[in-house]
């Protein structure tokens, strides 16, 4: 069948069916030397149909990802910056020093992170203890509720995800987020990125971004970058799985969440 007939077939069939021409490819025995991390054998065993898009068999799965931050384990400034830089580096986070800055994971003193939890008589050291903040990946995220285009949405595994191609930059999500976890690209971020990692896109000006629990890494079977860098201070796992690390640590330690009274059910827990 020649190329034109195939095109007319597309008219008859569903326009989305891009991969109709199954007779296209000939024998192909080459070895692609691509930086693939997936398990080819597992894929082959699954017997996927050609022309489909499928999940990585090695992806990390969960019903609801959650993170516990063991604040006690953060002792030196290096403990914080290690996590922060791990994230900044792979996600091409610009280093903008004005109020129009971009933050995925960052630190704030306890009094700012938990303003409703502090009192003037509390231990001075705790008051100024730096706390790592990131998107809470709420179970009932206000940002998703308000987004007019579905550019921010909740994945099956509970991650509140950003679709940078769809975001129109209305910043309604920023007004809705009670945690200040969202940042807007007021300007082109590229000049502010020290070293661009070409493996991950930067963002364009005019879209909102935030931490997404390294969804792209989870899909490839990797833990979030900050968790990897934290040397165990950040505990990550499936909240619905009673045997997960995160459940274990939460069931044995006192933990708090930011602004629980708003009912957003944050999935980032703090162990003090």
């Amino acid at each position: 069948m020649d190329i034109d007939k195939r095109k007319f077939l597309k008219l008859v069939g569903v326009s989305g069916a891009l991969w109709v021409g199954s007779r296209l490819a000939g024998g192909l025995s080459s070895v692609f030397n691509i930086r693939d991390r997936f398990d080819k054998q597992a894929l082959a065993d699954a017997g996927y149909e050609v022309g489909t898009m499928v999940p990585d068999p090695g992806e990390l799965k969960a019903k609801q990802w959650a993170m516990a931050i063991d604040v006690r384990q953060f002792k030196t400034p290096e403990d914080y910056t290690r996590c922060i830089q791990a994230c900044d580096k792979i996600h091409n986070i610009p280093d903008i020093t004005t109020q129009q800055d971009i933050k995925w994971i960052w630190e704030e003193p306890y009094s700012a992170a938990f303003p409703e939890q502090h009192n003037q008589y509390m231990e001075a050291a705790l008051k100024s203890t730096p706390i790592l903040l990131l998107c809470n990946q709420c179970e009932f995220p206000p940002c998703v509720r308000v987004c007019p285009t579905g550019a921010t949405f909740k994945r099956q595994d509970g991650i509140v995800m950003m679709d940078y191609h769809r975001c129109i930059g209305c910043r309604y999500c920023m007004a809705a987020c009670p945690y200040g976890s969202r940042s807007f690209n007021f300007k082109d971020p590229r000049p502010y990125i020290k070293k661009i990692d070409p493996a991950y896109p930067t963002r364009t000006k005019g879209v909102v971004e935030k931490c997404d629990f390294c969804a792209e890494r989870l899909d490839q079977g990797l833990m979030p970058a900050c968790v990897e860098a934290s040397k165990g201070a950040l505990i990550f796992g499936d909240l619905r799985d009673p045997d997960s690390d995160v459940r274990k640590v939460l069931s044995t330690n006192f933990s708090i969440r930011r602004k629980p009274e708003l009912g957003t059910q944050p999935n980032v827990f703090y162990i003090l």
Partner: peptide, 26 residues
């Protein structure tokens, strides 16, 4: 005013192309 407030005004039609009934802005 909504239009000039958008970071990506060229994508304004996304509000109609991907309507989100739970968004007050829609």
């Amino acid at each position: 005013f909504i239009f000039v407030d958008l970071g990506q005004p060229m994508r304004v039609m996304n509000v109609i192309l991907y309507p989100q009934l739970h968004s007050v802005m829609f």
